[in-house]
Amino acid sequence: MFDTIFGLPVHPLVVHAAVVFLPLAAVSVVLASLWPRFRKWAGWGPLAIATLGVVFTYVAKESGETLQSRLGINVGKHAELGDSMLWWALGLLVAAVAVYYLNRQRKSSNLVPKWLPITAIILSLVGGIGTVVHVVRTGDSGAEAVWGSTTN
C-alpha cells in the first residue's frame, strides 16, 4: 500500500502533499484562533485542512519507511524527524479541534469560559509555529539525504 503508485515510489509524491497541507493548516488554524472574522468565514476549513495534513503525514512516514527498507539506505536524521513530524501534525489537529469547538460554542451561546479562547490561541501558536519549523527541518534533512550538500 505504501510502496509504489504506477511504478513510482509513494513517498516523494505524498511528501509534497504534506508539505503543502501542513503549513496551510498552520496558517489557517492560527488565523482562526486570533481573528474572529476569519474564524467565521473559514468555518470547518482549518479543521479539514489539518486533518488532511495528518493523513498525508502518516502516509509519508509509512511510505518513507517502506522506501528506506526497499533501497536499503539509512537516512537516520530524516527518518527521526519524519517520525516526530506526525506528532506535530497531530498537535496541530488538536489545536484545530479546539478552535473549531470554540467557534461552535460562540455560535450556540455566549457562555464561553475565559480560559477557552486563551487555550485555543496558545495551542494554535505552539502547534502552528512548531509544525512549520518541523516541516522545514524534516524537508531539509530529506533533501540533504538525497542530494547531499549542493551549496558551497
Rank of each mutant, 00 (worst) to 15 (best):
R39K: 14
K40L: 06
G43C: 05
W44H: 10
W44P: 11
G45Q: 15
P46A: 15
P46V: 07
L47I: 04
L47F: 15
A48I: 14
I49Q: 08
L52M: 06
G53I: 07
V54F: 14
V55A: 09
T57Y: 11
T57I: 07
V59Y: 05
V59S: 04
V59I: 15
V59L: 13
E62S: 06
S63H: 09
E65G: 11
T66N: 02
L67P: 06
Q68P: 11
Q68Y: 02
G72H: 06
I73P: 01
N74W: 13
K77A: 14
H78A: 15
G82Y: 00
G82K: 03
D83Q: 14
S84I: 14
L86Q: 09
W88R: 09
W88D: 01
A89T: 00
A89L: 00
A89I: 01
L93Y: 07
L93C: 07
V94K: 04
V97Y: 00
A98L: 04
A98C: 06
V99H: 01
Y100C: 01
Y100D: 08
Y100T: 14
L102D: 00
L102A: 01
N103G: 13
N103K: 12
Q105T: 04
R106D: 09
R106E: 15
S108Q: 05
N110K: 05
N110R: 12
L111Q: 14
L111P: 03
L111C: 09
P113Q: 02
P113I: 10
K114L: 01
W115F: 07
A120C: 04
I121P: 06
L123M: 05
L123S: 10
S124F: 07
G128N: 02
G128C: 02
G130C: 08
T131C: 09
V132G: 10
V133D: 13
H134Y: 08
V135W: 09
V136C: 04
V136D: 04
R137T: 07
T138R: 08
D140P: 00
D140M: 06
S141T: 11
G142M: 09
E144K: 08
V146C: 11
V146G: 03
